[in-house]
Design a binder for these strands. Structure first.
Lengths: 330, 330
DNA sequence: CACCAGAGTGCACATATGTGCAAGGCGGTT
DNA sequence: AACCGCCTTGCACATATGTGCACTCTGGTG
């Protein structure tokens, strides 16, 4: 049965494209009219399995968007507590305690991707950091068409071992691809060796272009790095910092970082030496961004997170339930 | 296995309510984290079937909202044509030609309900007409919590046989219930016998209250009545009009009505006699409403629909594919 | 013209989901 | 305390959905 020119061409062909037209029709019939895939297959003169695939496609392409919203009047207690105490909108990702860390990251990343999706608008300029959390998120984004939106890298990614370019830029590329956006890389190391070099570079027009974009950000997406407990974050173990650097951080009582900008547990950051060589946005500048989304997975990040919250770096916080509980105990 | 106080109480209980808390958790895990119901059941210490029910509940109560959007750049040809020629945003409901009329109505109603859903905002004042189409839509609404929104009846529903109250008010009530809104009935007949009575009533404060609300409408939802072809609409066969009325309509070259206000195929309505006794909003007033959604199912309505479009009564048009094709042929 | 890579399809099977039904819990009444 | 109605649950079965695989079609390419 060739579905070419017999019955398929005319009866159900009010649209343009072939396959994506069917995907849209199928999606409407499935999600808006509650037909079964079987029934849809009959109306579309194709097999049920094809319909199943069309629907997958419709979901992946962003034709279908599924939102889960907790009615504001009945927000879960945990989220309310976090909102009240830290002044952020909290999105707690429900996960049983028994789940292992990598699975937690997976699920937080997936839910984060889907929470972020609806917030990405046309004409937006969105900064993204890099790191294991953001990497995981970037893998789970669902597509959505936007116009004239731009993703800009928040901080450099090079280090003494590698240029780091591929790692950070892959993350960025995935965001750009998911939303059909332009992408602006920031081709500098994560940290300069000398504060002077940073100053010099910051005057270069090629760099200024990126900094200008960053100043006009409408949204920023980042994780947090955390010193102090368990597994150190990418920044602390990836060859970005040498032994001496780590010691000065400790001396400065640093608890974590956002986009390689360090802060203490009280949120202060201005007199931390390493920040003069870091390529991330100054935290004062970051705080000017309208929507600042922080994604956190795993309890080892708690200390860094507390600092970030004390510094008021985020407007929105997406985190796993275990960490959320930890956070409100204190 | 009683899921009372053993393991369920503490481990996964960061929220408030019991059942709806679980529904939210389940919805997040299912729709945002892509777990299977089985996996969710394990994390929630319950059975898979309960999870299935929780998810149904989450969908019905509006915790989960599913949207299907056609990327504006690739709008189906039919919808584009309608938009261009009639100046409305068209939502064509895909349906194979083979489907019978009552099924078409069902499916249009369901998709209409889900299309309207996201448009209902807090603080909105929304007018609704009545009739077989609106009745079908009202049965299919999915719940969604809003604050301080109001549904107001657009036109009276009484006639010489019955008060019509229950019929129209049931429609209104369902809308109100779905969105947690106030509801304002309009307890007058569909048509007065004497234009004088209408004038008098329109000065009554009880009536003025409704008319005031109507003036402040932010949205209106209605079907169309159509004379001329096949099955007559509710208005024309339900005992609202007597023989003489029908004759004057014909003499006036009326092709249809919206909320019992009649118009000709060119969209004109001002000098139609019966309108002086009708309780629907004057069409000039209706046109002032920001969003005016017209739902149409079945080809018998084509003539009325053309008139309504000529009169620019709608900003949005939801209709079945067959009618849509008819509409652009001419 | 033969051949090949890639995309798309339907089939058959593996999974996942929906639902009638009987059993059990709970609160109120006799 | 015994009874009753109402609601919720899990089970078992009926349906619905996802997917590996072999096959076909298409449009180059040698």
């Amino acid at each position: 049965m060739a579905p070419t020119s017999d019955a398929e061409a005319m009866p159900g062909a009010p649209f343009s494209g072939g396959r994506s037209r069917d995907a849209l029709r199928a999606a409407q019939m499935y999600y808006l009219q509650d037909l079964t895939m079987n029934a849809i297959a009959r109306e579309l003169n194709t097999s049920r399995s094809t319909v199943s695939r069309l629907l997958s496609m419709a979901r992946e392409t962003g034709l279908v968007q599924i939102q889960v919203n907790n009615p504001t009047d009945r927000t879960p207690a945990l989220e309310q507590q976090i909102s009240r105490r830290f002044g952020v909108q909290a999105h707690v990702v429900p996960i049983a305690d028994s789940v292992n860390d990598s699975e937690v990251l997976n699920r937080v990343a997936l839910q984060a991707a889907r929470t972020i999706g609806p917030l990405v608008d046309s004409n937006a300029i969105i900064g993204v950091a890099w790191g294991s959390t953001l990497s995981a998120v970037s893998h789970r984004l669902t597509r959505k068409q936007t116009h004239d939106s731009t993703f800009v890298q928040l901080n450099g990614a090079g280090n003494t071992q590698t240029t780091g370019i591929s790692y950070a830029s892959e993350i960025l590329r995935r965001f750009g691809q998911a939303y059909g956006s332009r992408v602006e890389q920031f081709p500098v190391p994560a940290f300069f060796d000398h504060a002077e070099t940073k100053k010099a570079m910051w005057r270069e027009r090629s760099v200024r272009r990126i900094l200008d974009l960053q100043e006009r950000m409408t949204m920023a997406i980042f994780g947090v790095g955390s010193i102090g407990a368990g597994i150190p974050s990418h920044v602390y173990s990836g060859g970005y910092l040498d032994h001496e650097d780590l010691e000065t951080l400790e001396a400065d009582e640093v608890v974590g970082d956002v986009a390689t900008m360090f802060f203490r547990s009280d949120g202060s950051h201005r007199d931390i030496l390493l920040n003069q060589r870091s390529t991330g946005p100054d935290l004062d500048e970051l705080r000017r961004v309208g929507r600042r989304i922080c994604v956190v997975s795993g309890e080892s990040k708690i200390h860094g997170l507390r600092g970030a919250l004390a510094a008021n770096l985020a407007t929105d916080l997406i985190l796993d339930e275990g960490s959320a509980r930890r956070l409100v105990q204190a």
